[in-house]
């Protein structure tokens, strides 16, 4: 940095500070109020948008699109990690992060368009990483739910509630991570005056989409039972058997997919690092426009490839096509 520039900057700051003190301008507190006002405005806007969205979702059933898919992804992320955010809050956080990242990446790439691309794909990579983490906990939970269903379904002959109570009596059948939900279901129905349908809806919401089939069947069974109908639950056991059969194979294939992806990424990184040791090549990669474009496209390809690879590993076996 130029010495003159440094000197004038320091001088300017000193004058500003001196004026602030002598004339009692209270610049710092104004600055603080401005920041607080900005944050409050953002929070207000987010709350309003959240209320609007919830209202709208109650009235209109939205079509499947990129945006709804992103929304459901983010909402499941927030739910899984217990983040103290709404969808809108998450979006504005992402926006701020994006701005900061563009500012940082511009230092390296010296080109705003390319750095925007890089930051977008890095953000996609981050979000994918977090969904990957949440998926691992989710698959364990699905396993527990499947266990619970396998025990509950044959017992459901005398009513779902009786079956749940029977299962709750002994401690081993339900895993401790989903046990509280079932306890709450019984409490809701018996002590808090919920209808069976409502209590089941609450349980279904807590346990997630894997439990949808059981919940729907339980509600039908409870409200119009016919002779021979109790066995409809046995279908869920069959479905779970098919799922278990495929799960063993799935894990192996997905592990190999991840391994392949990691290998290829490592190869690219090692090769780039090695080629940086050659002087002309380093100059080409860091200072030439074409080289920068190449680097950008490599980062974009890696991040989006990572996202695609993880998206392909999402839960298999959604029976019944697209809903």
């Amino acid at each position: 940095m130029d010495l003159n520039l440094l000197f004038s900057l320091v001088l300017g700051f000193t004058v500003l500070a001196a004026m602030n003190i002598i004339m009692d301008l209270k610049m710092l507190s104004y600055l603080k109020y401005a920041v607080i006002g900005l944050v409050n405005g953002l929070a207000d806007r987010n709350t309003r948008a959240y209320v609007q969205r919830v209202k709208r979702n109650k009235i209109i059933k939205q079509k499947e699109s990129m945006i709804t898919r992103y929304n459901s992804l983010v909402e499941s992320l927030i739910f899984d990690f217990n983040l103290p955010l709404t969808l809108e809050g998450f979006n504005s956080l992402i926006g701020i992060l994006f701005a900061v990242m563009v500012l940082l990446v511009v230092f390296f790439l010296k080109n705003i368009t390319l750095s925007a691309f890089v930051s977008v794909s890095l953000l996609v990579g981050f979000i994918t990483f977090f969904t990957m983490q949440s998926r691992q906990t989710k698959s364990a939970k699905i396993e527990y739910i499947m266990d619970a269903e396998d025990i509950l379904c044959p017992l459901a002959r005398e009513g779902v509630l009786v079956a749940v109570k029977k299962v709750l009596e002994s401690g081993e059948y339900l895993h401790k991570s989903i046990r509280p939900y079932f306890v709450q279901f019984v409490e809701n129905y018996e002590n808090h005056g919920y209808s069976f349908r409502r209590a089941m809806e609450v349980l279904n919401k807590q346990l997630g989409p894997k439990f949808d089939g059981f919940a729907k069947k339980a509600v039908i069974f409870e409200y119009n039972e016919r002779k021979g109908m109790a066995d409809v639950f046995l279908d869920i056991v069959d479905e779970n058997a098919a799922l278990r059969e495929i799960n063993a194979r799935k894990d192996r294939i997905f592990k190999k997919m991840n391994f392949d992806f990691l290998m290829k990424t490592c190869l690219i990184l090692i090769f780039v690092m090695y080629s940086m040791t050659i002087k002309e090549m380093r100059a080409f990669l860091l200072d030439n426009d074409l080289g920068r474009f190449l680097n950008t496209s490599a980062v974009v390809a890696i991040c989006l490839g990572f996202a695609r690879c993880q998206a392909l590993q999402s839960d298999i076996g959604k029976f019944g096509g697209d809903r």
């Binding site: 194979r249 997919m257 690219i268 090769f271 090549m281 496209s297 890696i302 490839g305 298999i316």
Partner: peptide, 28 residues
Amino acid sequence: DELNHRKGSNERTQFVLIVVLVIYILVY
């Protein structure tokens, strides 16, 4: 079938990474 479909689609996606690597090697 769905598993195999995903496997195939993953291989196609990762082919892009190989293309990137090949470009780097060519430049080298």
